Simulated assay, not measured.
Amino acid sequence: PYQDYQAPIYAIPGNHDWYEDLGAFMRVFCDDAPPLAPEPAPRPLSRAWLRSLLWHRPRKDDGQHLAEDRKSRSAAVQQAVQPGPYWAIDAGPIRLIGLDTGLLGTIDAEQGAWLREVSKDPRPKILITGQPLYVDGEHHPCAIEGGGTVDEIVRDPAHRYVAAIGGDIHNYQRYPVQVDGRTIQYVVSGGGGAFMHATHTIPRVDVADVTEKEFRCYPLRGDSLAFYSRLYGRRLRMRRFFTLTEAEAAAVIAERLDIRPGRAPASDARVTWRMRLVAGLLGTGRRPDRAKRFRLPVRKIYTQLFSPSSETYSPPFFKSFLRLDVTPETVRLRCYAATGNRAQEADPPVEDEVLISLA
């Protein structure tokens, strides 16, 4: 899909890249690893055999496929060999810094020392990490081996960070956090290609003085709840009970979280006992004063077992991608929806937009 993109592509590893010790990532993006040797067939019913059912093993023709794929991006302007899994790129008025947060969302002492050093540059900076620092209404500052956190470095006014963008979670979220009189945009942007992580499970946001008024997400919670209600209705063969319309889902979430819905619900969207029960079973977020109740596995267990196989090929897809346009004075950050609808393919809708000052 990127053969006509006339620019180099740089990457940071996600947690899945570490499932094979970063070998494939280093070979593709850093040109720094030989082809992996094919492995012998594991003994049936062994741990290696079970693992082989869930993950790819090296094959004899892997190198040939990579060589053929590279021919599709052979132009000089498309070439890039990055020095490693973490890097800094000076892009005009800003510095982009990419971190490798590994499997556990932490960095080692060596990468931490490097981050502190490259953060001393006087230019405004944008951090890009494998795992986000704010997500689902929670703060994950990313510990550094030996002491300190990544977020402490980001918040230091001398380092001039204006945004921190993380992936891992397959949706879009934005938290504009006030730090010493300036705003740092903490963004989750992981909705590019995999199955959708629910947003309706995000509780009422109140973290680092960011409330529901400032918080943004895509898909909207109502659309997320409606999507999962159809999914569970189909899987459990209980469509009449589970299925909620987008208007019904938005109305019950507004009541449950005591918030204004992202879009105005239909005038006839009356919240019923069934809607409240379905919302609760599907893990819809709550106000902090509400007790936890039984819910179906819509996050961890569902993600591990069902979500990858529940990818839909019928629009809307609720995918998204992030675009940043930089001038000497500002960064324009926009989240675009990738719905799968032909009418929106050439002109994708903007779901969120913010202008960041570099002054």
Rank of each mutant, 00 (worst) to 15 (best):
V210D: 09
L104A: 12
T101A: 14
A247Q: 07
E246C: 08
E351L: 12
Y19G: 10
I169F: 12
G84L: 12
W87K: 05
P348G: 13
G283C: 06
L358W: 14
M26L: 14
L333K: 01
Y313C: 09
S307K: 06
S357F: 05
V354H: 02
R27W: 06
G222P: 04
V354W: 06
S267Y: 03
W55V: 06
Y228R: 11
Y186S: 10
P93A: 13
Y161C: 13
Q173E: 09
R123K: 04
L282V: 04
E248P: 01
P203K: 07
V278P: 02
F317V: 10
A208Y: 15
G181D: 13
L54H: 04
G262N: 03
G167V: 09
T330N: 07
L225H: 10
T330G: 09
R332P: 00
Y336P: 07
P203L: 15
E329M: 13
G146F: 14
G84H: 05
L54E: 14
Y186D: 06
W114T: 03
A254L: 00
W49I: 02
R240C: 10
R334A: 11
D151S: 11
Q131V: 08
P176D: 12
E255M: 00
L324M: 15
W18T: 01
L115G: 05
I165H: 10
E353D: 10
I165D: 11
R51C: 07
W273V: 08
E246N: 13
A11R: 07
P83N: 14
R239Y: 05
E345R: 07
E138I: 08
L133R: 02
S189A: 15
E117M: 13
M26F: 07
Y175N: 07
Q111F: 07
M238T: 04
N15R: 07
Y313N: 11
D168N: 15
P261D: 03
V150N: 06
Q344D: 15
Q64W: 15
R332Y: 03
D61M: 14
S46L: 10
P8E: 06
S46M: 02
P288H: 10
S309L: 09
R70P: 00
W49E: 04
T327A: 12
I202S: 02
P85L: 09
P141H: 11
S357C: 11
W18P: 01
A250P: 01
D21Y: 05
W114I: 03
S314F: 09
G340V: 14
G222S: 06
R235V: 11
K60V: 08
Y313F: 03
P315K: 14
S74Q: 12
K300W: 15
G167P: 02
V298H: 13
L133G: 08
L231G: 03
T327W: 05
A250V: 00
T199N: 01
D352M: 01
E20P: 00
P122G: 13
R293T: 14
V150Y: 04
